[in-house]
Amino acid sequence: MLEIRNLHASVNGKEILKGINLTIKDGEVHALMGQNGAGKSTLSNVLVGNPAYEITEGTVLLNGKDLLAMKPEERAHEGVFMSFQHPVEIPGVSMVNFMRAAVNAKRKYHGEEPLSASDFLKLMREKRKIVELDNKLANRSVNEGFSGGEKKRNEIFQMAMLEPTFAILDETDSGLDVDALRIVAEGFNKLRTPQTSAMVITHYQRLLDYLKPDIVHVLLNGKIVKTAGPELAQEIETRGFDWIKEEIGL
């Protein structure tokens, strides 16, 4: 369970998050919607410990542990995963070396032996099928020369390898064609368990049609201003955000 209390954060001295309160229980999928600049990406970056963001107030607990006190890699080991809006290209580091370092670091953190080379490759083979990536994946450099769709599928592949308990999808649907969107969304759904929770950031209803969120929040000007069921996403799709602004007197 993730509990965010009164979270304030700023970038380069400018306050972006102005008191976020949000609780995500195990197994729940929450959608976070809002206009550009509302603070959606800031919230996800703060949760994964991006050093570019400064937290000025508030707490975040993950299964009772103080998330904000952990290094980014420790948060990952505790089950936090983010599918990046812009996955980073890392020339010269192959996917197999990258993933092996990641998987084995997590195993070490939990007191487990590293996976043998053959077990690891077997695992990679199995997981890449979930998002229909081919067998050339292992030897390609991380995201280098990947198309937009491949990059997003690669994010979900990494999620499959790391089996997080709390996943953040930061505009994973941006730049995807209809088929790639389906592969990514179905891939994500296959990975869901009763313990997995997620925060999905999106501008569009079509991703949510696949993911079927339990709760939809609207983030405006650094605060969550409206929370409702999945029908809220549909309403935003047809009516935009202005009516919500009027409702709260903005």
Binding site: P51, P72, E73, F81
Partner: peptide, 8 residues
């Protein structure tokens, strides 16, 4: 940072 987010 990307690598750290993956646990490295």
């Amino acid at each position: 940072f990307y690598m750290q987010q993956r646990g490295i």
